[in-house]
Design a protein around this nucleic acid. Structure first.
Lengths: 168, 168
DNA sequence: GTCCCCATGTCAAAGCCCTGACATCGAGGT
DNA sequence: ACCTCGATGTCAGGGCTTTGACATGGGGAC
């Protein structure tokens, strides 16, 4: 019962001493109108679509992200990949272990210079990535198809602006 | 070593029989230019900021989302909340258990009509939500501050369009 | 040289989320 | 009445992610 959204509810401020009466970020009837909600929804939809497509290639989304980054910049370290995929070093470490077990990447046992262990794709890793990339690109094309072409640049710019405004 | 992005690498298509040479969704030097990447990054930044802000209120992001939804539409079921927060019923169930243990919601032991168990906020839940809402709204304001006001509507619309284009 | 700071890799514990599977309940057609 | 179908709640297993903590290595200040 009950569908989400499309309902304007009465105000709820009858609680206590709030000098600032919680001004909404912008005119919004309910949560559904909030930017955060829309952003989360779009991101969730993309994640679901990618999960589904990548499963056929035996990859998870974080695994694919790592492979893509490594294909562009071979020799990245675990910490580099963590930053590039927006997760912690620990999470990236788990992902790398999975990729290593699957023989898709190589990683030296110990570093000769610093402490960072440079990661490289294996031939199998590159092959797997190239196969999966088609599926992922198709999803991206489908996603973009809904937005007017002349607004795409602005959309990218605004996403960046929002990211930057939230600090790091 | 090695910062992410800002690097254009040579082509890599020297592998096998790809009739379609993996056309990128739009002109892009590297992965950093892709819409999915930006979307994920913005979403991650928002998630991090919300996590940090909500921790001071003893709430997680999914918990806050559920409370917000329940404040607008009391009596939603577990499945409703799952759809509203873009997760599975199982995940929502775990979140609800946490909220129940924290005495922020009430849930009948068994339903009298169907199988859906209507969830309601307790007074403590409402109070906690209202306190947390200020922090969340502040984040949203900060996030929006970077995008030109006249583009906000278009941004929301485009996010919706992308979500819709990806099906369900 | 020595000390301090920062970055890196790693382990452990906890929480969130997903897929897969199962049982229950209501609605509709037969 | 019966049966199928969809929706719901729940359990189990596994993967991802986080916080917290610890040890190692390099670079700079002193």
């Amino acid at each position: 019962m009950g569908t989400i959204g499309g309902r304007a509810l009465a105000c709820q401020n009858a609680d206590m001493e709030t000098p600032t009466p919680v001004p909404p970020p912008h005119a919004a009837k309910d949560v559904t109108e909030h930017v955060g909600y829309r952003l989360k929804r779009a991101s969730a939809a993309l994640r679901t679509a990618m999960d589904r497509a990548l499963r056929e290639h035996g990859l998870t989304v974080p695994q694919y992200s790592c492979l893509e980054l490594l294909d562009e910049q071979p020799g990245l370290s675990n910490a580099d990949l963590a930053r590039g995929t927006f997760v912690t070093r620990q999470s990236a470490n788990v992902v790398l272990r999975g990729l290593k077990d699957a023989e898709l990447i190589t990683r030296p046992q110990s570093a000769e210079h610093g402490r960072a262990l440079p990661v490289h794709l294996t031939a199998a890793g590159r092959e797997r990535l190239h196969a999966a990339r088609r599926a992922v690109y198709a999803i991206e094309v489908r996603m973009i198809s809904g937005v007017p072409a002349d607004r795409l640049a602005a959309l990218l710019s605004d996403l960046d602006a929002m990211t930057e405004a939230l600090g790091d």
